[in-house]
Design a protein around this nucleic acid. Structure first.
Lengths: 192, 192, 192, 192
DNA sequence: AATGAATGAGGGTTCATTCAT
DNA sequence: GATGAATGAACCCTCATTCAT
């Protein structure tokens, strides 16, 4: 990749990053191409030259972002920490890039690119979640009685719930005692 | 309230209902005043006469909607079912009107009416959640070791997670076995 | 029709007239909604409220314009002038509204509204042309040997040729001698 | 002209050809520089290097195109066919390159390059038309009574009319009988 | 009180043209 | 000389909101 292409890729990356940040803060509809262009330091047309349309830009951001999630998940999974620590990392990390996409975003993306999302979720996310549960089972953290489907759903609920709650009360999560309690709840349930 | 005023109130209610339905389906930004007016069978100006502005209409809808959530919660709480059944009703009911507001909506509302939301959540929701936990503790469903703050957060996470996941995989929830497993997870945790 | 509707119709007519004039002068693509709005003395949005889109406005103008052509033809046909005078009126009248649409316009219209144009031409124009030829035959102006199809085509060619030439050299047509010669050419041909 | 310059000329010719084809199909306004560049297999900037601007490219195409018309006319004129056959060739040939420019095109060209067009038409087209008529007169095909000006205009009308009608009904022209009738109409007029 | 008509501001997109390599 | 990247200006269209009846 020569200097030409490198600069082009950099610009494209700049745009993507600016777009992602704005999308995450305000949602797709509220962010105008003009805003993205200004934030990325390019003209509107440059965005069109690179991405074709706003929808296509959104699609592209999503794919990049999903890719990043998976990378992060895989990194955590690959480490040699015990299961409960991994659980905490995956589930409660506010800096989790996954936490950046939510609500309207996911819904819009789903409308924009349904086949991709469907396949991505089924193939990548479900797969890695199962690997994670398998590890948990082997280490005795997860009861063998629970079905895989229920586990899948449970993790999805927790993950989304954390993300969705984060902008309201998750400041509480800085409190170590509360975190420990939460992990206890995940591990031993309400009944303790 | 005479017939005149009653008709006026009815129209206002029609508008609110139409607006809520559309907001829930498409989000605030995607719904235009014109659409609401057509759905409610009135002119755009009538909406302005009644609500002043779109933001004000949104605020008004939110308050109505939050009021409805609380009513529903209170109804469930007031019934004489055992704790675990109430848990299932509150947590997994997809028809839960609460489930209809999410992501962008909550965010927008928060920006639109932060003090109200803050106080509503602290005073009403937290209060009733605590009452619910208290009941759970008395019936032996909730461990006394868990702090109230963590419980508060846990319920919020679960509730939001369920709502947020609902459009992706919650069809699975029709499956009774999975529901039972989920409730088991909430009650006894991953460790079972 | 009350004052309300009358004013509305007037505005709509104003817009249509402004649009037609500009379209005729510069073609569809070169004329912006903004120009039309300024010329009609309304805002751009008013045009959208009345016509929905630029394409729809174009379609509407075309239909109005075609309607006017037919009215004019019928008026000439209905008069009791001899055939050759009618021929001159129909064929050479530079003020002929038909002359105002040409080239790109017809082509665009054809792409925009093919079924309508096709049917209009077949049913209305062809019909009235045939009536005209019939009259010409009865008065001995048209040879009985010529087929109707050829006549149809001949008139079309002449009509369009006159229209299409008008902006180049038709000033010559102010010259009476030349008009007489042209009519002679139409009537007796090159061979005289 | 060395190989370098020849290749340069070839590229220029490629661009001109691509542009002409697109202009003829879609009109000037609807064709973008980008399209021309892609069709010619060069970059947009190359077009600017060769032609300076879109208007200049258009002007250049026009001149080339008009030159081609004249060549074709001269070729037909120079052949030793009888007058009526030449008439048919000139007037009814749908493949006539002249037929490819019409309506919007001519108008735009006129606005772009009025002096050139004016002089071209007066000097070249009028001249050759007169030569053609002279030949017709000598062979007894054209009445001596008709003025040159009227003939000039008549041919212009017919030529344009044929071109302008071609996309609507000229399929009829495949029918030999209709062609014969048309030629009869040109030659002997409506009166036969 | 209610409405149809009208609008200013802004959004996504395209185009002819220029810049930098 | 040729190119990929970048841009200002303009266009079509939508929306929340106001005006006039």
């Amino acid at each position: 990749m020569n200097g030409f292409e490198r600069r082009k890729e950099k610009k494209k990356e700049d745009i993507r990053r600016a777009a992602l940040e704005l999308f995450q803060s305000y949602g797709f509809k509220k962010v105008s191409i003009d805003e993205i262009a200004r934030k990325a330091g390019v003209s509107q047309v440059t965005i069109y030259n690179h991405f074709g349309s706003k929808d296509e830009l959104v699609r592209n951001c999503i794919r990049t972002f999903l890719h990043n999630i998976m990378e992060k998940f895989k990194r955590i999974m690959g480490s040699d920490k015990p299961f409960n620590q991994k659980l905490e990392l995956i589930v409660l990390d506010k800096t989790d890039i996954a936490g950046q996409f939510q609500g309207e975003l996911m819904q819009t993306v789903y409308q924009l690119d349904p086949e991709f999302m469907e396949s991505f979720w089924k193939n990548e996310v479900a797969q890695i979640t199962m690997d994670f549960c398998e590890e948990g089972r082997k280490q005795g953290f997860i009861s063998p009685e629970i079905s895989n489907e229920a586990l899948q759903l449970y993790f999805e609920i927790i993950r989304r719930g954390v993300v969705s709650s984060s902008y309201m009360q998750m400041d509480a999560v800085k409190n170590t005692k509360i975190i420990q309690d939460l992990i206890k709840l995940f591990t031993y349930g309400l009944n303790g």
